[in-house]
Write a protein that binds this DNA or RNA. Structure first.
Length: 160
DNA sequence: GCCAACGTTGGC
DNA sequence: GCCAACGTTGGC
């Protein structure tokens, strides 16, 4: 018997986005968005190797007045080649990536809902003891896509 | 705007 | 493979 694969939609993630670039309101308006432009190998590996259709993700506003979690999205398409890597006009163009061996991948994130209120990084930091080693709170973390455990997910949502 | 904490690049 | 230089992230 084959080992069971990870159940569809059973995992949780956190996606960072600068609201001046792409906010939760933008996601709500367009409904779904290909998460292009990730140029970090670890973040890519999370998308390419781990994310399953239906996984849930916190939508986090970074580099803004009140950084924090503002909404929820859901993986609506599994990873595929990020087209911006082949577009010379794109800010994310990667001349070293070959079309037959794409270096970068992206998933599609669908809008699920906005939180009733922003759960700020400040507030999350204050609850650090209850959250264990939440990747978001790890020192020096700069990844734009982070894993969240089910207990962490449930605890953060309970703050809403 | 500052700056700590990275990840990446490229010379050697 | 080492590592200095450089670029980026992102909170503050």
């Amino acid at each position: 018997m084959k080992a069971p694969t990870t159940a569809v939609g059973s995992q949780h993630w956190l996606f960072k986005s600068e609201p001046t670039e792409f906010s939760i309101d933008d996601l709500q308006r367009v409904g779904r968005e290909a998460w292009t432009g990730v140029r970090n190998y670890q973040a890519r590996n999370y998308m390419r190797d781990a994310m399953q259709l239906g996984d849930l993700a916190f939508f986090y506003h970074s580099n803004c007045a009140v950084p924090g979690i503002v909404g929820i999205g859901r993986i609506s398409r599994k990873a595929s080649a990020d087209p911006t890597q082949f577009d010379p006009d794109s800010a994310y163009y990667d001349p070293k990536s070959q079309p037959d061996h794409p270096r970068w991948q992206c998933v599609q994130l669908g809008f699920e809902r906005k939180l009733k209120r922003c759960i700020s990084l400040h507030e999350i930091s204050q609850k650090a003891a209850a959250l264990g080693n939440l990747a978001l709170l790890q020192r020096g973390n700069r990844l734009s896509i982070l894993p969240v455990t089910a207990p962490q997910w449930n605890f953060i949502l309970s703050l809403e």
